[in-house]
C-alpha cells in the first residue's frame, strides 16, 4: 500500500458519498446515468466476488463489500425510490456496444483462462468504459449540477491516482499488471476533457457548461 493508492481509494469512497449526498439532498437522480451505475454494479460484482474465496486483507475486504453494497444501493435509489426523477430518454448510450467488445477482450487478454480470471479481466475492461454513458449524457445535456461534477472529479481522481501508484509499484516491487495498467490509462484518458472543463469552470466558481 502506498499513498497514491490509498488516496485513490479514498477518492473513490468520497465519490460514492458525494453521489449519495447529491441524490439525498436534491431528492433526485437527475443528471446521473443509470447505465453507468448499472455497469459499476456489474464491474464490482464480477471483480469483488472473490471475497467469497480469497482473503487479501481486512482493508481489501471492507472496501470490496462497501463498493458492492453501495453500488447496488444507488441502483435501488435510482430504480425505485427516485425513479420519477430519472429520464431514460437522455440516457441513450448503447451499452451493448461496450459489453460485447469487453467480453471478447476478456476472453483474449487474461492471466489464466479460468472462469474467475476471465471475469476479472472483463470487470477491468468494463470499468474502463463504464463512465462513457455518463459522459455521453453530460455531452447531450451540455451542463451539470455542480455536485454531479464533484462526483465525476472524485471518480476521475481515483483513476488518475492509480497511475502514480503503478509507477511506484514498478520501482518498489518491480511488478507491472499490464491488463490493469492498459485499461487504467484508457479510463483516465476518458476524463481528460471533463477535467479540462471542470478546472476551468467549476473550480473558478462557475457553472459547468459545455460550449454549444
Amino acid at each position: 500500500m502506498n499513498l497514491f493508492r490509498l488516496f485513490g481509494d479514498l477518492s473513490h469512497l468520497a465519490s460514492i458519498f458525494i453521489l449519495l449526498h447529491k441524490i439525498r439532498t436534491t431528492r433526485s437522480c437527475r443528471g446521473i446515468s443509470f447505465k453507468t451505475q448499472a455497469l459499476y454494479v456489474a464491474v464490482f460484482v464480477s471483480r469483488y466476488l472473490d471475497i467469497l474465496w480469497e482473503w487479501v486483507s481486512l482493508y481489501n475486504f471492507v472496501m470490496k463489500v462497501f463498493f458492492i453494497a453501495s453500488s447496488c444501493f444507488i441502483l435501488y435509489l435510482m430504480k425505485m425510490k427516485y425513479r420519477p426523477t430519472h429520464d431514460p430518454s437522455i440516457d441513450t448510450f448503447r451499452v451493448e456496444f461496450l459489453v460485447g467488445p469487453c467480453a471478447l477482450l476478456a476472453l483474449i487478454f487474461n492471466y489464466k483462462f479460468t472462469f474467475t480470471e476471465v471475469l476479472w479481466s472483463l470487470s477491468i475492461f468494463l470499468e474502463s468504459l463504464a463512465i462513457l454513458p455518463q459522459l455521453f449524457m453530460l455531452q447531450r445535456t451540455g451542463e451539470a449540477e455542480t455536485i454531479t461534477t464533484h462526483y465525476l472529479a472524485a471518480l476521475g481522481a481515483y483513476r488518475a491516482l492509480y497511475i502514480p501508484n503503478w509507477i511506484y509499484r514498478y520501482f518498489s516491487e518491480g511488478v507491472v499488471d499490464p491488463i490493469a495498467v492498459t485499461a487504467g490509462l484508457v479510463q483516465t484518458a476518458l476524463y481528460a476533457d471533463f477535467f479540462y472543463v471542470y478546472f476551468t469552470t467549476v473550480i473558478q466558481g462557475q457553472k459547468f457548461e459545455l460550449p454549444a
Binding site: D9, V56, N60, Y111, N165, D177, A180
Partner: peptide
C-alpha cells in the same frame, strides 16, 4: 516483471 498472480488492488 509481469504481475500475473493475485489481484490485491481494488
Amino acid at each position: 516483471v509481469w504481475k500475473v498472480e493475485g489481484h490485491d488492488e481494488l
